[in-house]
């Protein structure tokens, strides 16, 4: 019984390690490259160094940093509603959006 528990724990640990590894691989964008992309495509709505009042565009300094999936979906497909945003999926590659995510995580302080 005990041996079985240990075996299962081992499998769980391996799975956890794999998950952590793939998460970090997905988030391996460069904040420096992200800043360059930001200054080309995003700055005109979200503001230099992400500083804006939130009147025109979402204040990116308040973006929940645990929600990478939401960030990627918003950039790719755009958003409807109060914080409406155009879609960028045809211009920015998945890799470039990862760079933007890396820069977003700096809260504009770099």
């Amino acid at each position: 019984m005990r041996a079985r528990w240990i075996r299962l724990t081992g499998i769980g640990a391996t799975m956890l390690a794999t998950t952590v590894f793939s998460l970090s691989a997905q988030a391996a964008g460069s904040a420096e490259t992200g800043k360059e992309l930001y200054n080309t495509y995003c700055v005109i709505c979200h503001g230099p160094n992400m500083v804006n009042s939130g009147a025109r565009a979402f204040d990116l300094r308040k973006f929940p940093l645990g929600d990478r999936a939401r960030f990627i979906k918003s950039v790719k497909d755009g958003k409807k509603g109060r914080n409406e945003m155009p879609a960028w999926g045809d211009v920015l590659s998945a890799e470039e959006i990862d760079h933007l995510w890396a820069y977003t995580k700096t809260r504009g302080k770099m």
């Binding site: 709505c45 503001g47 230099p48 500083v51 804006n52 009042s53 939130g54 009147a55 025109r56 109060r82």
Partner: peptide, 25 residues
């Protein structure tokens, strides 16, 4: 003006930005 004044002028006139951003769409 609503797009850009808060974005590029906010630091110079925070009280105006506040008045402007309080206006609801």
């Amino acid at each position: 003006y609503r797009n850009y004044f808060p974005l590029l002028g906010g630091v110079n006139a925070p009280e105006v930005v506040e008045k402007l951003t309080k206006v609801q769409p």
